[in-house]
């Protein structure tokens, strides 16, 4: 007996929910041979504004969680990602990857999440310091999260690139608004489903699919975005991000600055707080 096909609607991921774009728009996600795999939501600037608001509201809670707890939650992402490995392999193959390459990329992505999870309670020891000062004081520098980070995810590699930009931002307690790869929106939304089922609090990561040309300027100009990871931005948009960053002195991570597996991706979105504390005698 034939079944009625159940086709999935690929929507945005904002504040722990999966809304359609407020604009009602969508665009076709194309496979390797140009066939339409699905129509995915095309986010508008208002969706971006909503995502930034959701992220801002989630920031304090996520930054306030203990480093150990953040590590646990990120490790949980790896567990859920492993569970959905089959789906990701299929979605990558639809984009034209071979099976072997797809399977390797998914496995590498899971390992990358585990690797970053481990950093959560260790990076402060690497980036922080007890500074030598001339006086009876402890002088301590500790890294603190920057805040709301806009992530422009790379088009390639579709999943590893997404994981390698989104997860390090989470590690120190930042929240993010992610502009997914325009050419690979389906793995991004599937990854959002992984996040939604991994104890990641609502709003900590928000994923928008749509046109980077349309959305990046709004992200770059947004005064409530504290930093932008431009890893997946083409050259003309990198310049636009740097222009927009002027207004509130956003931190920007330029494409190619750090590899996708680097503790300096964590460091890129931290601020150093230095405190003086009397030693007594």
């Amino acid at each position: 007996m034939s079944r009625l096909e159940v086709r999935k609607t690929y929507k945005l991921y904002i504040d722990g929910k999966f809304p359609r774009s407020e604009s009602g728009r969508s665009y076709p996600a194309l496979g390797a041979d140009g066939e339409v795999l699905a129509r995915v939501a095309r986010a508008s600037r208002k969706d971006l504004r909503d995502a930034v608001r959701a992220a801002r509201n989630a920031q304090e809670g996520w930054a306030g969680a203990t480093a150990y707890n953040r590590g646990q939650v990120i490790y949980r992402i790896a567990e859920t990602l492993e569970d959905r490995a089959g789906t990701f392999v299929e979605q990558l193959m639809e984009l034209g990857y071979t099976r072997a390459k797809s399977e390797k990329e998914v496995a590498d992505s899971v390992d990358l999440v585990v690797w970053y999870a481990g950093w959560a309670d260790k990076f402060p020891q690497v980036l922080g310091n007890l500074n030598p000062v001339a006086g009876p004081f402890f002088n301590i520098s500790v890294p603190e999260p920057t805040g709301v980070v806009g992530v422009v995810a790379p088009e390639e590699p579709a999943l590893y690139g997404l994981v390698g930009t989104v997860v390090p931002v989470m590690v120190p307690g930042n929240v993010s608004v992610v502009l997914a790869a325009e050419g690979a929106p389906m793995p991004a939304i599937t990854f959002a489903e992984v996040l939604a089922t991994s104890d990641v609090p609502a709003g900590v990561v928000n994923v928008l699919t749509g046109s980077k040309d349309e959305l990046v300027p709004w992200l770059a100009d947004h005064m409530d975005v504290d930093a932008v990871d431009a890893t997946g931005a083409p050259q003309h948009l990198v310049e636009r991000i740097e222009e927009g960053a002027v207004h509130n002195v956003k931190r920007t991570l330029l494409p190619g600055e750090w590899s996708l597996r680097s503790p300096y991706r964590i460091a890129a979105f931290t601020e150093t707080k230095t405190v003086w504390h009397p030693k007594g005698r």
């Binding site: 504004r49 930034v52 709004w218 100009d221 947004h222 005064m223 409530d224 927009g244 207004h247 509130n248």
Partner: peptide, 9 residues
Amino acid sequence: TGRYQSPNY
């Protein structure tokens, strides 16, 4: 300004 604002300012 045409830029979304932040309560910080």
